[in-house]
Nucleic acid binder design. Sequence first.
DNA 1: AACAAGTCTGAAACTTGTTCTAGATTAGCG
DNA 2: CGCTAATCTAGAACAAGTTTCAGACTTGTT
Lengths: 201, 201
Amino acid sequence: MTAEARPAAPPLTERQEARRRGILRAGAQLAGRGGFEAVQMREVADAAGVALGTLYRYFPSKVHLLVAIMQDQLQHLQVTLRRRPPAGDDAAQRVAETLMRAFRALQRDPHLADAMVRALTFADRGVSPEVDAVSRLTTAIVLDAMGLEEPTQEQLSVVRVIEHTWHSALITWLSGRESIAQVKRDIETVCGLIDLSADTR
Amino acid sequence: MTAEARPAAPPLTERQEARRRGILRAGAQLAGRGGFEAVQMREVADAAGVALGTLYRYFPSKVHLLVAIMQDQLQHLQVTLRRRPPAGDDAAQRVAETLMRAFRALQRDPHLADAMVRALTFADRGVSPEVDAVSRLTTAIVLDAMGLEEPTQEQLSVVRVIEHTWHSALITWLSGRESIAQVKRDIETVCGLIDLSADTR
DNA sequence: AACAAGTCTGAAACTTGTTCTAGATTAGCG
DNA sequence: CGCTAATCTAGAACAAGTTTCAGACTTGTT
């Protein structure tokens, strides 16, 4: 029931890499309809043309799978952002623009967003390493937008708070308790902390 | 599979009220060991001396049950806070103290905290009304600490951001990815927004 | 007190995540 | 090529959330 240690993943063969990609694609597609609940492990295995046991060898749980999908999407986002970086004048504006861009991307596929974000916040300790990887990626994206190389402790806390707000605002939006406009306002509000920490520097 | 409308709950008889309390107590107790996963509906029903079908009549899902438990706990917290309100000089300090007090209460029973918070963020649209009730309670507690009766739009957004940070920081703490000290720092950081919005007023 | 409507019980059934097993396939290696 | 270990497949089995149902019990009404 508890997770095992991670003894340095062995390199995957080409076919294995292809299988992995196929599983991620199938999972994302199923998430695209129906969200979290529509991602059923048997269906994912079917759609990916792989046995159920194999699916579980690649991703030890549904949450692992969805977190891996999120990591995948975030990497795409990061590439896109590097191609066209946010253009605001100060750090707060750039971070807000970055997050709003990500938010608009999620709005294009709210079901997929639902599956990924719910998995991320529902993950228990057994998925910590994977969730942590996603978190580091998100941090990197925000720090990129801020233009920081060596953040202070204080700035790191601000970034954490921004990420907290980001995740939780998404959750409330996905469950229909907060409007798109409110999410936008929350993002802009929390980005106010960046100026604050710059002043206090 | 989808949830029904809410046609104004009929008043409960005394025995029904007692059953409801018994279920909440049993659920909280099971959550106290093992957290979210340890709350098994069959066991809750057993411990509460109630048939499984009855449990589901009172709480249409495990998440509903755990959210109701959270609401219950929050109400207790609110009473406690009114008895001994936070004593800080400015609003930011009082809110931070309030949240840290709640955090210490959660630390006393991390498994229960796990069950409640994971349920809260995992809840889908079918649980929105109940989650919203918890959210309103939390907002009321924070506004109490700020000493505000009629908050502005801007202040409400700050409060939402504080709640977002609160929930998400708890999640990361519960999954072992953030330390108690970091949670404390995050709470203090986000409370900085209160001063900011006071300045800009 | 007797009836009707609503509630509760006990147990089985169903769903979906997860685990397990026996045999087929593949990959790496001498 | 032939061997061995690892991987993959198909399918059964198991676990826990949820639904369903027939019958017993309560409650409110007359």
